[in-house]
């Protein structure tokens, strides 16, 4: 009983720390959709606030805005050169805005980076790719999390951190100076 309470206390504390970090990372970025509210708890409870655009609140229970991925039903998707994949976790959240309406479109024939890179694909094991260990690919510049139940999928959230806009403001987990992001997975 005591142990449970303690665990719960730690979990709440952790979430709160993550929340503060996420807030600082998003504030003022392209993903800051809020009006003028300063207190973090108010933000989490205000429907127009910074987190709720991705963490859609459960209407019956509180606290569930921390789970965007579970709200997405899996569906088939065809993107970038016809690769079939299922948007799970972060990708479906991103693509619900990045469809050309609310935000720039990310797709098969766009003129941006996506023409040169497949996404929503399974991370292979073998020559040319750094091995994935425990669902992460780690190189000299840092670590990238793979997604999905088997933790083997390259999704938007593998290269992008939804909560941290980063130095170059592209929400990259590893800035791509000197191709550092690319070289985290691709081995020459």
């Amino acid at each position: 009983m005591k142990l449970n309470n303690y665990a719960g206390f730690v979990a709440v504390g952790l979430v709160f720390l993550l929340s503060e970090a996420a807030l600082a990372g998003i504030a003022g970025s392209s993903h800051d959709f809020r009006g003028a509210v300063s207190d973090v708890r108010t933000r989490l409870n205000n429907p127009t606030e910074i987190c709720k655009v991705c963490h859609i609140p459960h209407s019956t229970a509180s606290g569930s805005y921390l789970n965007p991925a579970s709200r997405i039903s899996a569906g088939a998707v065809t993107l970038h050169g016809g690769s079939m994949a299922t948007p799970a976790n972060s990708s479906a959240v991103c693509l619900s805005c990045h469809d050309g309406s609310v935000a720039s479109r990310v797709g098969a024939s766009s003129t941006d980076y996506s023409t040169t890179h497949p996404f929503l694909v399974t991370y292979p094991s073998g020559a040319g790719f750094r091995p994935a260990v425990g669902g992460n690919v780690t190189g000299a510049s840092g670590s990238l999390p793979l997604e999905g139940a088997a933790r083997n999928r390259v999704e938007c959230g593998t290269c992008h951190n939804p909560h941290e806009r980063g130095a170059g403001s592209k929400f990259l987990r590893i800035e791509n100076t000197n191709s550092n992001l690319c070289l985290t997975c691709h081995q020459k």
Partner: peptide, 14 residues
């Protein structure tokens, strides 16, 4: 409508 997952609420209405 409002933000939420109850009947009549929305995530990303289009």
């Amino acid at each position: 409508g409002n933000s939420g997952d109850a009947m009549g609420s929305f995530g990303r209405p289009k």
